[in-house]
């Protein structure tokens, strides 16, 4: 029941996000959308994912978006109107994706392929081989250590990219390395 209430609320938020023109409201609403998603993950017993979603999606992403608004503008330009070919493409792709989910096993189905050999093996081996009570940590940090290393590299690259693109500030106040707003050396 709460499951459907949350999903309904998320759909309503998504539609409102489409219609709103005030970007400040959009940022706030997308934060609440993320918080809803986090609650949904808790309902689905995925606490680790919920934790990340609440911290990143509802917390940091909102702050960064607000920072972006302060840099740019907080009001979207006028609605260019509906483009029917684009709408048709979106509807067809969306329908195909929904059609694709019909083949997936039901949520929590014990006969789902993932519960046949992968999950039981990690649950069986994880605590024995790593001594970690939290199977998620044992998978993320040990069995899938390469993936996590890749993720951290992505985070590092993102920060390095932001620094390279817009992070260089004028070092001297009075002119030696003055930079224009676009970040180019004049």
């Amino acid at each position: 029941m709460i499951f459907y209430a949350l999903l309904t609320f998320m759909v309503v938020s998504a539609l409102a996000l489409l219609w709103l023109r005030n970007l400040f409201a959009v940022v706030m609403l997308s934060g609440s959308f993320s918080l809803n998603a986090a609650v949904l993950y808790v309902v689905m017993d995925a606490v680790d994912v919920a934790f990340t979603e609440a911290a990143v999606g509802a917390g940091i992403a909102t702050v960064l978006m607000l920072g972006t608004l302060a840099l740019t503008t907080s009001h979207e330009k006028a609605d260019p109107g509906v483009s029917w070919p684009h709408l048709a493409v979106v509807v067809v792709v969306g329908a195909a994706l929904i059609y694709g989910t019909l083949d997936m096993p039901r949520y929590g189905d014990p006969m789902a392929p993932i519960h046949q050999h992968v999950a039981p093996e990690y649950i069986e081996r994880g605590p024995k081989q790593t001594g970690m009570p939290n199977v998620v940590t044992s998978i993320l940090a040990s069995y899938r250590g390469y993936d996590t290393l890749g993720e951290v590299t992505v985070v590092f690259t993102a920060a390095a990219g932001v620094l390279a693109l817009i992070g260089r500030r004028r070092k001297k106040k009075n002119g030696v390395i003055k930079r224009t707003r676009s970040g180019e050396r004049p």
Partner: peptide, 17 residues
């Protein structure tokens, strides 16, 4: 790394102007 990345991105965004 994640903490440093988040702080860096925030400061860069906030201090850009």
């Amino acid at each position: 790394t994640v903490a440093a990345a988040m702080i860096t991105i925030f400061y860069v965004f906030a201090n850009q102007d």
